[in-house]
Design a binder for these strands. Structure first.
Lengths: 335, 335
DNA sequence: TTGAAAGCGATACCAC
DNA sequence: GTGGTATCGCTTTCAA
């Protein structure tokens, strides 16, 4: 293994000089700098991460806790993770993967062992049991999602309440008076997953404000196609607008609509809550509120990096929803 | 921070004794062991990972390179990752996430810096440019997938060639004479992604052997529903069996079939290649060949752990495909 | 602008 | 069965 001493010897300088060339923490003459840099390249030197962590108390590793249930929204999680890795690399950090299954103990372990410098937690629940313990960690923490009591932890997420409002506002603006929410499965609500309840809150509030009849339904994430739409129409025969906050059920629902000869948007308007990339790929491009997984991932990393840089005040950033009007919504037909 | 010296002092023993209690690498009297363990608990001691890595040249971290393109099969990747994390934790290891985007350099960096002890690489291509460099790493490596020239690297995967054969064999056995493969999009083949070509090879070979007419088509992963089936039927009007090796296109294809009034399996039989959990959730449970992401993830970790334990000979493990007969296949109707 | 050397917190060898 | 201590590779303070 090539060590800093090897580099120093080969370059004819002190190890500390090599260290400073790398870190840039003190002025180095251009000549020495070039010499050292060349030697590093020539020898193929890579600083030993463990030694570095030991001496500097920094690992340059971020821990990311992801939900690996299959019921959850896989595509969004992946997109988030991808952007987080990329953003982390831009700050010269790596990502260590933990799962929600491992519970709070995993977080304590990773931080106490100095495996990671900071922690990002996805899939936060309203009364998340991890919050109290995260507070005791004394390390930067960023929650993706918003618990009822963040207690001074930083949070990043789409503003789902505003998204719920926006979906209703759009349909109401077009003249729809009876709309139904196709939400995630009951298990999501049972867990108290914060985004689902926040969305519903906004959805319902805006419906009241605008005096439109709004009902909510929960569809299993595994829903493919079959009786879902028939059930819904039986209960809400005069519905003209659907808000789908359940990307996994989207293909099945649209298949049901097509099969039943219900035209979109002529007979029923559909607003989807899903990544834009998903919305545009349907034969009828969907009017949608984007789930900005990419932005949230990047923002989470930036927030955590800011905290690592010493900025220790908690900040909650809720991204404003963006509703893109595409081909799946229109004014309701007169009947 | 609580160090091993703090524990030693509090317990009235030498630091080395504490170390040995933890590692179990030498005999300790029950009395001392209990004393030390209690002290560790009481003080909340966690060994410093960096210090450990420095002294022992082991990080207890596995690097996993995942493909984070969105065109690729998200659900399978997630399932694989989930099982890999779980398996790794069973061996007291953590998982560091790298992406294919970072290229071969990332692997060199992670290994040379002693951030990880070994590497697992997903989404291997036929002529994967990473293979030559992986060979120079001098660390355990496991490929998920099989390149044309593994050159002594361990590989783990589903036996896709056998899967291709099995799909044809099942349909041919039922009496089908004209079948079509709905494969992944052209970009997958262009990358030379090994599983896709291996599947086709088995598919075609078995078709020849059984003298059934077999055609192959490539559907975009983003396919939802629309003209896909019409195109296919126009080109292959007398097809009676479909093999779908493209889970993302599955909902769209089935929607097309339903919409066109093509009954499954009465008019057309469908064999899917996808995780079992996916196959069983359709209204017509699909006859399928399972993509054993879970098993592959676990096996990959076990293989890498075996190598870390000193077993340095490369082993290629191709899991035999399991075809589960469900409701989407039947003998072809006589026309 | 550079060098020397004291840690950082474990492991594992050498003694007893 | 236990203790003492050199060592791992780097960062950073102190000196020059």
């Amino acid at each position: 293994m090539v060590t800093i001493n090897d580099v120093a010897a080969a370059a004819g300088v002190a190890p500390s000089t090599v260290s400073y060339v790398i870190s840039g923490k003190r002025a180095i003459s251009p000549k020495t700098r070039r010499l050292v840099e060349d030697t590093i390249r020539k020898l193929g030197y890579h600083p030993h991460a463990g030694a570095r962590a030991l001496a500097s108390s920094k690992t340059n590793v971020l821990a990311l806790v992801v939900p690996l249930r299959t019921d959850t929204n896989v595509a969004v999680v992946m997109e988030f993770v991808a952007s987080a890795v990329t953003a982390a690399r831009a700050y010269d950090h790596d990502l260590l993967l933990l799962t929600t299954d491992e519970g709070p103990a995993a977080l304590r372990r990773v931080v106490s062992s100095a495996i990671a410098d900071a922690v990002m937690v996805m899939d936060v629940e309203a009364a998340d049991p991890r919050v109290p313990m995260l507070l005791t960690l004394d390390r930067p923490v960023v929650l993706i999602g918003v618990p009822d009591h963040p207690d001074g932890l930083s949070c990043v997420d789409l503003d789902f309440a505003a998204a719920g409002e926006a979906s209703v506002a759009h349909l109401a603006g077009l003249g729809h008076r009876r709309i139904v929410l196709v939400g995630p499965g009951p298990e999501v609500y049972q867990r108290g997953t914060s985004y689902a309840t926040r969305f519903i809150r906004g959805f319902t509030a805006e419906a009241e404000r605008r005096d439109v009849q709004a009902a909510t339904t929960a569809w299993p994430a595994a829903y493919q196609h079959g009786g879902g739409l028939d059930d819904l129409l039986a209960r809400h025969p005069d519905v003209t607008g659907l808000v789908v906050h359940n990307e996994a059920a989207l293909p099945g629902l649209l298949s049901d609509l097509r099969y039943r000869g219900v035209r979109v948007p002529e007979d029923i308007s559909v607003v989807a809550v899903c990544p834009d990339s998903m919305a545009v790929h349907y034969p009828i491009p969907l009017t949608s509120i984007a789930i900005p997984a990419r932005e949230v991932g990047t923002l989470a990393v930036e927030t955590v990096m800011r905290q690592l840089a010493g900025h220790r005040t908690a900040e909650t950033r809720l991204l404003a929803p963006k509703l893109a009007v595409r081909a799946s919504t229109a004014p309701p037909a007169h009947r």
